[in-house]
Nucleic acid binder design. Structure first.
Lengths: 253, 253
DNA sequence: CCCGCCAAATTTGTCTGACAACTTAGAATG
DNA sequence: CATTCTAAGTTGTCAGACAAATTTGGCGGG
């Protein structure tokens, strides 16, 4: 029993901490793939923890794609953190001051992807794709009637658009982004969103995207998706004018 | 000692298998966040393995963001696989027949993102951003002279472009994608790539992207990035005409 | 001197048992 | 009925043992 364990904060498990420290170390050293990590025995001594804790931390890094292990040989760097999988959480602590900018950055990533995806969907959508979008829209329409929640249906509409590109990587990326941005849809579909007309306006934008995709007009689809994302960002209090090609901004040169 | 362990294939560790099976089960059941998983004891009985194996498998799922644990309470679903982090590997086995299509899908994802990022970079780049791009290009120029490898410098150029958007999410996404696509750059920068002129042509395309960004022309930057990606895909034997808004394709309606 | 073989040492993978730390459920009390 | 307390259950960590795989070093032969 480690005497310090009783003072451990609840969210800070030893295995979590060791995994995080190892990841930071690998990133700081910029180890090339194939570099061998210290043995479990050495890591136990270095961190002052049991072998089980080290093994669980290594398991986490294996899941991240950063580390591979070979029985009898050791653990080896496979990729730097951030290279094997993509997460939205930025490195370092997230503070209250950084949140609006982070959300704006994420919306910008969404803007790039979803305007392009709408274009491709207009070129490639099938009847089944359209039915899937229409079904999500019907559920949103009913939610507007009843003043109920349609966050999941809103997300499903966007995933259906991405699926209509017939590119599973895009569809999966949209599912990932949609899940990460679930909370951003709440102000549209809660009671005050219904009363302020935000839900109704979002649905109109969805209908314009749908119409452009259904008629197979890629340019209109891109423009409809762009307009929707601009409006969605505005509804959240973000400033989307930075994404648009308007007047040229000052250059620091 | 489990009698079946001797017959285990080398790449299939028990903890890997259990983690994979749990992930598939969570996805198949579409568990909502908050749903409690069976206890470790139950999972040990169900899978016929020791508690250490279960714990390591759960550690993997925790790293993936799919599961959270509370000491004394249990393990709970936090997100479906694919919702908490994004990876390029598709679910299910990757066969030889799927590989070219998968690469094409990934290039398309890259196309959507990098054309938009080039546009934003032209609007926002600083002198330091341009110096970083120029440095990567100088290293590629020298590699062309000497007939040596510049895969990493090629990657660095694209990361520098994404960094010039001043959106860290984009820069990190580009770093992720660049790492995943390292192998796709090898045919450009190996001996036969040099001799066939592929490296020289890629560098010309980089120069056009750089020039458009340096002069702050977002439309030209988008077009230069698009042309580069089309040529890069063609160099790999992919068909990039599907990405472009040309004649409308047949609709299944 | 070089190469191949073999045994010993090392390292990861799995199992088991024990105890600590935390949570939950049920019973008892006011 | 609400609150408190206790016991049972569950995860977190430690330690030891053995299995499976890899690496290293020594020895012998060509």
């Amino acid at each position: 029993m480690s005497g310090g364990a009783g003072k451990r904060l609840r969210s800070a498990r030893l295995s979590d901490e060791v995994a995080e420290k190892l990841a930071h170390w690998i990133l700081a050293e910029k180890f090339a793939p194939g570099v061998q990590l210290p043995t479990e025995k050495t890591l136990c001594e270095r961190f002052g923890v049991s072998r089980a804790v080290i093994r669980e931390a290594i398991s986490r890094l294996k899941a991240d794609g950063c580390v591979t292990t070979r029985q009898g040989a050791g653990a080896f760097v496979a990729a730097l953190p951030g290279e094997a999988s993509f997460r939205l959480a930025a490195p370092g602590p997230v503070t209250v001051e950084t949140l609006p900018r982070e959300l704006s950055d994420v919306f910008e990533l969404r803007y790039l992807m979803e305007t392009g995806a709408a274009e491709l969907a207009a070129m490639r959508r099938t009847a089944a794709d359209l039915a899937r979008m229409a079904s999500a829209m019907e559920r949103m329409r009913r939610a507007i009637e009843l003043g109920t929640d349609a966050v999941a249906d809103d997300d499903e509409f966007h995933v259906a658009v991405a699926a209509a590109t017939q590119n599973p990587q895009l569809a999966r990326f949209q599912a990932f982004m949609g899940h990460q941005l679930t909370d951003s849809r709440v102000p549209t579909w809660n009671q005050t969103g219904h009363q302020a007309g935000r839900a109704r306006r979002a649905q109109q934008e969805h209908e314009e995207i749908y119409h452009a995709i259904a008629t197979g007009d890629p340019v209109a689809a891109r423009n409809a998706a762009a307009a929707h994302l601009v409006e969605a960002a505005t509804r959240l209090g973000l400033d989307p004018t930075r994404w648009r090609v308007t007047d040229q901004e000052e250059k620091g040169e």
